[in-house]
Design a protein around this nucleic acid. Structure first.
Lengths: 221, 221
DNA sequence: AATGCCTTTACGGAAACCCGTAAGGATATA
DNA sequence: TATATCCTTACGGGTTTCCGTAAAGGCATT
């Protein structure tokens, strides 16, 4: 089984949740973590030089912009570098992204070994993923395996913007007005309401406040 | 001026904000940070042993409970340990706490060198605090200096509970009902509304969603 | 007891939000 | 072209939140 794991997620709560889940539920004793891609790359190289390389990397797809500019900006950039240094490294991506096509593209182009959608069952699925990845079996979240059914809910960029605006205190009416100025294909208050409602159902949120709080916890906002 | 600073806050956004503020606005080049008190203590001892001790520590008062049990549970516990190892270490506390009596007690009993209330101007005040603390002058947030005026708003435990309930999706009516069951001195929907309104004014939140989002960012919730 | 000050509560109207329904478009398929 | 399906939008009515005002209660001072 894996011996030395590196976890990279810019959101502390998520990061820490993963580390604790691994420590409490697996035999993996060496779990390192960081919030920055560059720091991850440094740790990765150092581990290799010390003769104790990582054998599994769990990382997020996107990292928030920062005052502190990072040369490595996305999880994908980092994967390229890691694979370059250590081609056989196992990689699990843990992200809020759940658009099937986008995920499939990532799996195809970067040969990652697992993809897990953050959410209510993310950590449980991570535990399921680890033995699969160990045995060279690609693991993807259950929600994603229904790749033929077409009625799977997917969060899009507009959803993210809506959540961000909500968290900044913008009213639904104001959000609609902003979208009108941007000539977004979604314009009306009614559509914004519908979008928010779908998000609430997806994240099992009782109301909009709860929804934004969940978004914060997941690191979407 | 200070050369080697350690920042300890369990909330990543806050932690990182402090570090970046220091790096961008002061000549302090060595800025270490951690989210855990125990880790802070280890780093602190190591720095001492290496002949490169920290000369300033910036830390939070409270740290969230964790699956991972920490022996050092509060900032005050940590201060005791640090002062024990290095009596002249300068300490600035950076917390959401803004109850004057509580803060005064901390200043008296732990001889800290600065106390800054998290909030809109927290980071700006931190920059003001540093030269003061360097010159052995106690620094406290402007908001706290008005210690004679009695109409300063203070967040109490009930406010925290309200924010937590809101973030879990509890409606204001339900919150009032919960408080009735607990025989809280505050009972009515009207009072809950008033409390929330005061919080919104204090944190300059446009609406309740914004308020909860700010609370998440500050690490209150 | 009387006064003043502050907190809690009640209440009512406005605004925002919630939610179902239905109409109108766009697109894909037979 | 007709049909089905999905998405956007409009709308109406119920609920919740927002916000000001006023009454009631607690507490300290005189």
């Amino acid at each position: 089984m894996f011996k030395n794991v590196l976890v990279i997620d810019d959101h502390a709560a998520v990061n820490h949740g993963i580390v604790q889940t691994l420590k409490n539920n697996t035999n993996i004793h060496q779990v390192a973590f960081t919030q920055y891609c560059e720091d991850a790359y440094i740790k990765f190289q150092k581990a290799q030089q010390d003769g104790n390389p990582f054998d599994l990397v769990i990382l997020d797809l996107t990292f928030k912009e920062d005052h502190h500019k990072q040369r490595i900006k996305t999880g994908l950039d980092l994967i390229k570098l890691l694979r370059n240094k250590q081609p056989d490294i196992k990689i699990i991506m843990y992200s809020v992204e759940d658009r099937k096509t986008k995920i499939q593209t990532i799996i195809d182009n970067y040969s990652i070994n697992g993809f897990i959608s953050k959410g209510r069952h993310g950590l449980k699925e991570l535990l399921e993923a680890i033995p699969n990845v160990w045995n060279n079996t690609l693991y993807t979240s259950k929600a994603l395996n229904l790749s033929n059914q077409n009625n799977v809910f997917e969060i899009d960029d507009i959803d993210i913007v809506i959540l961000q605006e909500l968290s900044k205190g913008t009213s639904q009416k104001e959000i609609a007005e902003k979208f009108q100025l941007k000539n977004s294909k979604i314009n009306s208050l009614s559509s914004i309401e519908k979008k928010i409602n779908k998000l609430k159902i997806h994240f099992k949120a009782k109301n909009t406040i709860h929804l934004v709080a969940i978004g914060k916890d997941l690191g979407i906002i």
